[in-house]
Design a protein around this nucleic acid. Structure first.
Length: 311
DNA sequence: AGTACGTCCTGATCGC
DNA sequence: TGCGATCAGGACGTAC
């Protein structure tokens, strides 16, 4: 049913990245210190150059695991001697000093990861055999734990790494996060107001809905009964509200499934627990009306919808 | 500004 | 049976 990605991993969209964040916290990554760094695929490292990246990470301690859209953020405690490693004058934990200029807001040095299409993270004992597609490895020291590694699995090498003390240098403009209160029909309506492109294409833009990806876009449009090829600006207020609600529902349901798995006997659930309402196969019966599902492409993305149920 | 498309990547799967 | 072509898509760069 799901498009094949790689064993144990499916396309990381918002619920998968949020699940990864919660998994990393549960695994005790916050409070762990990086004692070694291996970047196995140089193209993944966007900034800074490798040597600075490694030196900037070594002996720093992960403060917390945050998320913005599909980006994972690891603010770092530079260690015993704050100010030496980072250019920032203030110590760790100070969220932002009241710098003179707006815009460039220095923060704690922050490791940023994007899982791309086939990325996944695992915290595992060093002596556990790694997944064959581990590309990057971060050795960890954590109190009360043996030697462990944060392993970045990434089959197709679309994942990315950054180390920065200014998030705005790295992160693109991101729209509201559907798991937050900011994601209202008004905000959605305003951003789509004058856009004539197909709603499906625009839903995939991270500046409109942070964290949206191809599968959840199809799912949300199916749940809300909206044809993916409709020009975005043509959606009525009622449709916008329905769409917003279905996006939230799709994301929340998926995240609940991950939470349940993690809290039960499955502390490290693979991505892709979510079951989809709409089949991703041309001609398969629509679960609602039994008519044939249409498969097409919008902006070169596989798109599945029910022509009868989605007007 | 808004829209569309090519590019990067690998391995499962399809067709011959 | 084997081998080459095709397909999958997030984000970015570029062109129109």
């Amino acid at each position: 049913m799901l498009p094949y990605v790689f064993p144990g991993i499916t396309m990381p969209e918002l619920p998968e990245v949020e699940n990864t964040r919660r998994y990393l916290i549960q695994a005790g990554l916050p409070g762990s210190t990086f004692t070694g760094v291996s970047v196995g695929w140089a193209n993944a490292l966007k900034t800074p150059p490798l040597e600075d990246f490694v030196l900037g990470l070594l002996e720093t301690k992960v403060q917390e695991v945050n998320r913005r859209g599909k980006y994972l953020l690891f603010p770092l405690d530079p260690g015993l001697d704050p100010g030496v490693k980072s250019g920032a004058g203030t110590g760790p934990g100070t969220s932002a000093d009241t710098g003179a200029s707006r815009g460039a807001q220095p923060c704690a040095p922050t490791l940023i990861l994007h899982l791309g299409m086939t990325g996944g993270l695992r915290v595992q004992p060093t002596d556990q055999a790694p997944h064959p597609m581990v590309r990057h490895t971060f050795s960890l020291y954590s109190d009360g734990e043996g030697d462990r590694e944060l392993r970045f699995i990434d089959g197709r090498k679309f994942g990315k790494l950054w180390l920065t003390d200014n998030l705005e240098d790295v992160l693109p403009p991101l729209g509201p996060d559907p798991l937050s209160q900011d994601f209202t029909p008004d905000v959605l309506g305003r951003t789509l107001n004058h856009r004539t492109a197909p709603i499906k294409a625009l839903l995939l833009e991270q500046s409109i809905v942070a964290g949206m990806g191809n599968l959840y876009a199809d799912e949300s449009l199916f749940l809300s009964g909206i044809n993916p090829m409709r020009p975005a600006s043509g959606l009525s207020q009622d449709e916008l509200e329905r769409l917003r609600g279905c996006i939230v529902t799709a994301f929340s349901n998926s995240l609940e499934a991950y939470d349940a798995a993690r809290k039960a006997e499955w502390p490290d659930p693979p991505m892709g627990l979510h079951t989809w309402s709409i089949p991703r196969k041309d001609g398969d019966p629509c679960p609602r009306c039994s008519g044939p599902i249409s498969g097409t492409r919008i902006r070169a993305r596989g798109t599945y919808f029910c022509p009868r149920c989605q007007r």
